[in-house]
Design a protein around this nucleic acid. Structure first.
Lengths: 336, 336
DNA sequence: ACCCACAATGCAAGCGTTTTATTTTATTTT
DNA sequence: AAAATAAAATAAAACGCTTGCATTGTGGGT
């Protein structure tokens, strides 16, 4: 028994047809007589033939693989998006090459390049911010790209998000409606458009609507980890805030815990509203009130959009905004 | 300006050398004179040439890509492993094709096959159990495979785990040392070796060491979600247990919350010890006492092992057991 | 029977690399 | 300065498939 990998050629020989015909049946091309199709299929089955996707990719210039750049799989916000992406990808027969970037510009560029070298048919990027270098690479690439849960003022590529500004505005307004006047705003770096533009605008708008004064000392930039919650809480306290809008759930949980450790009653003494509705929000006590983002759907819709792009279908709108809701749970008072 | 993708051939022509030479400099082959190397490198830079990894893969029969089968990226236990895997993969210049299986046998087999079709150089499998069909596929595949955080009695492929039995035994012994005599054991299906063999054995052993009677009514099989925590808690209560060992953190958090909602003081009235030390354990209050598994490392070591396997290096032991610890936090009493 | 149209198949040229065997060039050795 | 050896470069054959074009087969219409 010779031990070479069995190829389309072997199948062709055994079935007494040409490679082209085998290729046709493998690819479901209708131009093949049912009897020959069956004959070929039988041989394929007997020889346990498995088409080599790499060869296929070279010949067809399609890899049925898309690259996914993610800051950190371990982050529930992004992994939820990733899950939506993968499910739809699978549905459309694509596979995902997943690469963690840690929001590191160098890594991102680096990873983008290896992904392109691997001839991915499309690319989904997740992150908090898009650097100029990355943006330059994006526009240079011929490969379709979609941003998921990531905003870019320069709308060259497709993207799927919610309306962060109005979601933030609405959240902060809830806090105001409950009687809070000093509301802290905790986010990642304000240099990132999603924070410094969308969310902050929403925050300011809510204050303005309520004729409250805007106080920059209530703005806090922070990392998104549970651990720093204590430090952030201290800052909030020093600013005499009685409520806080937080743009990350893990961080919000950290703040919540710190506040309770400090003896505060939530939501009586201190209110919190967070932004992602990742499952963490329901695992802490009291449960976090939050903007309900359709995380899975953002990923799913992004991937769906990408399939259209890869397929060169006509797109009506490549900047997609999905609806959101606000869930009032235990860290804000009931309204009525 | 002609718009064709630029290939190694273009570089060769421009640099006045053969394709083979270009290939050598691209691959860092030392057999090339520094001056020609520079010349080629310059052309590569000027033309912005990027080697086509697919063509490379076909010619070299290496894709520098490994497949990773994961039950659900959204599960912190597995995503932590995945993070370790990806970091080491990146370090060794591999990329990861990530595929969610939902522990669904059909999906697993299906995904395994597309991964093999894509000619991955290696495969990492994560899951709770390995079905016979999957095991058959594993042994049929010529591709190196490593299990991460996943046990298989039939040790045909490499694997990286901790000693679940002794970790469980130790955890339960802690509970016993605190005076508990009715300790529930909550895990996934006992049909899975990791539960029915390793963990349950550890549990029994701990009881035996303490001369406590083994009561099967204290065994609870459950899904691993936060949501079912309430139901599980009820069952535990009905069984008159005062402590519980839980093999999943999310579920443990659910049980913790349910117990507190029921008015119990933790750990005075009820003790909990969980198994994964995912970051959830530190985000709930009180923080969960837990087995400290080196999740990231399990992934990292698994990937490292896989690189060796792919490299056909000599392996001393392909079944790797990593050390664990026990962290006593808020859901068990302090000892001294 | 004969021609035509169209369905079914086959041929062979790519796809962009790597790699082996071979030739050319450079460096020693004597 | 020629011969021997080592180093660098080339030519061309894979790698396993897809696909445009050419060829053959098939049945219907006349």
């Amino acid at each position: 028994m010779d031990n070479h990998t069995i190829t389309i050629y072997d199948v062709a020989r055994e079935a007494g047809v040409s490679m082209a015909t085998v290729s046709r049946v493998v690819n479901g091309n209708p131009n093949v007589k049912p009897t020959t199709r069956k004959k070929v299929l039988d041989v394929i089955d007997r020889l346990d033939y498995r088409p080599n996707a790499v060869a296929r990719g070279l010949a067809s210039k399609k890899t049925t693989t898309v690259g996914v750049i993610i800051p950190d799989v371990t982050n529930l916000y992004f992994s939820s998006l990733a899950r939506g992406i993968d499910d739809i990808a699978t549905m459309y027969k694509y596979n995902i090459i997943l690469a963690n970037s840690d929001e590191n510009e160098q890594k991102e560029v680096q990873v983008l390049n290896t992904l392109l070298a691997k001839q991915v048919d499309g690319l989904i990027y997740m992150g908090h911010t898009i650097t100029d270098e990355l943006r330059a690479e994006f526009s240079r690439a011929k490969t379709p790209i979609v941003l998921a849960g990531t905003v870019d003022p320069d709308e060259q590529v497709g993207s799927v998000n919610i309306d962060y500004k109005s979601a933030t505005e609405e959240s902060v307004s809830e806090l105001i409606a409950e009687g809070h006047t000093r509301i802290a705003f905790v986010s990642g770096p304000l240099s990132e458009p999603i924070n410094g533009e969308h969310r902050l605008e929403g925050y300011k708008q809510a204050l303005k609507n309520a004729k409250l004064e805007y106080d920059p000392s209530l703005l806090i930039e922070s990392k998104y980890t549970h651990k720093v919650g204590g430090k952030v809480y201290k800052t909030i306290k020093e600013a005499n805030a009685t409520a806080v809008f937080v743009s990350d759930d893990e961080l919000a949980a950290g703040i919540l815990n710190a506040a309770q450790d400090d003896g505060l009653k939530i939501p009586e003494d201190f209110a919190i509203i967070t932004a992602n509705n990742s499952k963490i929000t329901e695992m802490v006590r009291p449960q976090l009130s939050t903007i309900v983002q359709p995380l899975y759907d953002i990923g799913a819709v992004a991937m769906r959009l990408l399939t259209k792009l890869m397929n060169k279908e006509e797109i009506d709108e490549k900047t997609i905004i999905l609806p959101y809701q606000i869930a009032k749970r235990g860290t804000t008072k009931e309204e009525d």
